[in-house]
Design a protein around this nucleic acid. Sequence first.
RNA 1: GUGAGCGUAGCUCAGUUGGUUAGAUCGCCUGGUUGUGGCCCAGGAGGCCGUGGGUUCAAAUCCCAUCGCUCACCCCA
Length: 422
Amino acid sequence: MSVKALKGFKDILPGTVETWQRIEQTARDIFHRFGFFEIKVPILEKTKLFQRSIGETTDIVEKEMYTFADRNGSSLTMRPEGTAPVLRAYVEHALHVKKPIQRLFTIGPMFRHERPQKGRLRQFHQISIEVLGTNHPMVDAEVMGMARLVLEELGLSVSLEINSLGCPKCRPEFNQALLDFLEKKADKLCSDCERRRQTNPLRVLDCKSQHCQEQYENAPSILDHLCPDCVEHFSSVKKNLDLLNVPYSVNSFMVRGLDYYTRTTFELLTDNLGAQSAVGAGGRYDGLVKQLGGPDVPGIGFALGVERLALLLQHEGLSSEEPQVDCFIAALGDEALARAFVMVNALRMRGLRAAMDHQGRSLKNQMKQAGRMKARYALIIGDDELEKGEGILRNMENREQQNVELGGDLAVWSKMIKILLV
RNA sequence: GUGAGCGUAGCUCAGUUGGUUAGAUCGCCUGGUUGUGGCCCAGGAGGCCGUGGGUUCAAAUCCCAUCGCUCACCCCA
């Protein structure tokens, strides 16, 4: 049996890579417009970084991380998300000193040991952004609008759901109110919710069971328990979304799987991905930088799932795949082949995409290859052409042919070809 | 971790009351055109029918085990 890729680890093959490139290019372009700069951070970090940021009792840290001992015994973890490493770099290099407000984005693989399914892999890729140094509600709205714009420019439509999770002042009070409420319902809940009631009470509100949802109709809402500051912040976020004409709906049941979130949280949802509805999600994390040993500055960020975006584009028939060749040189005979060899090279050095055959195929088959590669032009050279010093340049689209000088100086010649092909 | 479905050519899939040499489409290669692609026609290559065991005169087909993939739960991008 030959060796195969690991479960949940996928090869991105030619034909699909083009879609990925379009996704990344679109995101980069938009982020630049919004004043973001790219940062690249390591895939491996000390395990402690994620324990501190994501939260010791979250599912991610408890059972999904690729954690192992380094050769010297220290515990390392392959990053399960992007925010912690970026913040670590921000703190380590004191980026807040260089510029009080940092707008950063990064693109790369993440690793979580989950059971793979549609839109979920063990190695998956995120495009993520962070804004550090401001808690201005305009930034929240700006960032959500930017996420939406990426999807829009890709040709995708999604819905935006937002919520506020409060802050360390108001959340404990809500937590208690929720616990009290759930206690009364204790015997009416499904086994999942009963378990969640113990481990992560917020999660029960997200339960998919119809029966449970009925129980939660009168559950306390986080939005009714926000402190005045958080109320003000949230309503300002909504107002600013309106100013930008960004459509959204409030979902007070929305929760996040990472402990560090505060105040604004949001998800970009689709119903075309099977069980995975979120193509992007994020929120505010005002205490996290300080928690990681940095200055006490607020932050907000989001991540887009590249695989999920690619699936959506494929689903919408928007995937792009178009390898092209500008000029295919079909040669017959050894002398012509050698000539073609240097001509192809000359064209490539002048910025054209050129190709030729190396299998010793017949002219017919070489033309077939050219057609298959979607070559725009084919240049035919054989003994006759060499003798006359003229090749036949065929427009593959309209079949028109013209004779072209094969010339002596290849630089001049390829420049001439380049002009002909435009 | 739990549950369900599926493993036959590079891809998508036919093929069971068990019965000769396992098929099709697309793709790939060659030819029809001594030197011109797409359409058409002809030919060809490519399979331990996931793996191991069992039942049988006979297994892609029935049984058991195992591995793999997929989807869903949980959780998440």
